[in-house]
Design a protein around this nucleic acid. Structure first.
Lengths: 158, 158
DNA sequence: GTGGGATAGATAACATGTTATCTAAAAATG
DNA sequence: CATTTTTAGATAACATGTTATCTATCCCAC
């Protein structure tokens, strides 16, 4: 082992019999891409004291006020245990309300408060602007095609 | 029946001032797709008591024994604070070793133990099989194209 | 050499991810 | 109806994600 071997790894082609090169695997490609995209949004989110997941919840509730927790979980791609904690905190912080449903005492419906709507109104335009910039950098057509391919993959695997 | 989404033909811009339909946004598309893909691997991972992230680490260290923590972090897409904890546990459980580097006492190099290599040898074939099945279900060509597009997006945004 | 910055990694604190389990209420079944 | 099963949501326990900070070392200009 010579000292000071930089990151120069073995080379683009791995040994036979090994797993495909890690960087070429689909799961890591999805992860890395998401990371690069989200990095564009993070300063904006931090500026408003929102986590990425909290902003997802606010967006969906804004679009679908009265949604119940189960549907929200599915829509946001956040599992119920995480969502339960988040809703408790978002309610405590005054961004949304949870209301028991008459006729099914298990369910609760969720809606934004005035404060929640204000937050959305403040954040949404800038969020859109960032998204538009990403579209421009990557190409609107290519981006639409990519989203379409992702959806197709999901359909084929489900 | 599903809770369904409003089936208005209106499209993403049904209401002025709203964000694009949440389901059409790229970040959520990447998240959902990753979720569907990883679901295929989860039973296999659980069977061997590995988390998804632990398996990522084992794979990369197997491919690049002697890698240091910083490079491993970048290769696995796991931030250092998470990786520090994971390495401590993986070392405690006997899967890998951390060795101080002669000549730079800040760095440490990481390698699999016999137990770590055995684990890799046991898991790798099945992991490959699952990946091959996903490729078959989606189409090998389409999958390669998708990975390529993801990489292009990354390059364009970076 | 020495002080100041840069780098590798660890730790803290809090939020979320994941699996398993729990409770209560609704639905289905007999 | 009573029993069972299913469903909605909450909680527990542990792993990881994220940002900020800390320590120790290295590097470099002076």
């Amino acid at each position: 082992m010579d000292k000071d071997t930089p990151k120069t790894e073995a080379g683009p082609k791995a040994e036979a019999g090994q797993l495909r090169r890690f960087e070429e695997a689909l799961p890591i490609a999805l992860l890395r891409t998401r990371e690069v995209v989200m990095a564009k949004f993070r300063p904006h989110l931090a500026e408003h004291g929102m986590t990425e997941q909290q902003w997802r919840v606010v967006r969906v509730v804004q679009q679908r006020p009265g949604i119940d927790a189960t549907a929200l979980s599915e829509a946001c791609c956040i599992l119920m245990p995480s969502l339960s904690r988040m809703l408790k905190n978002l309610e405590k912080d005054g961004f949304l309300t949870r209301t028991k449903v008459e006729g099914d005492m298990r369910r609760q419906v969720i809606a934004l408060t005035q404060q929640g709507n204000d937050l959305f109104a403040k954040m949404a335009p800038q969020s859109e602007a960032i998204y538009a910039q990403i579209e421009e950098e990557f190409g609107k057509t290519e981006m639409a095609a990519l989203i379409d391919q992702l959806q197709t993959l999901r359909r084929n695997l489900k």
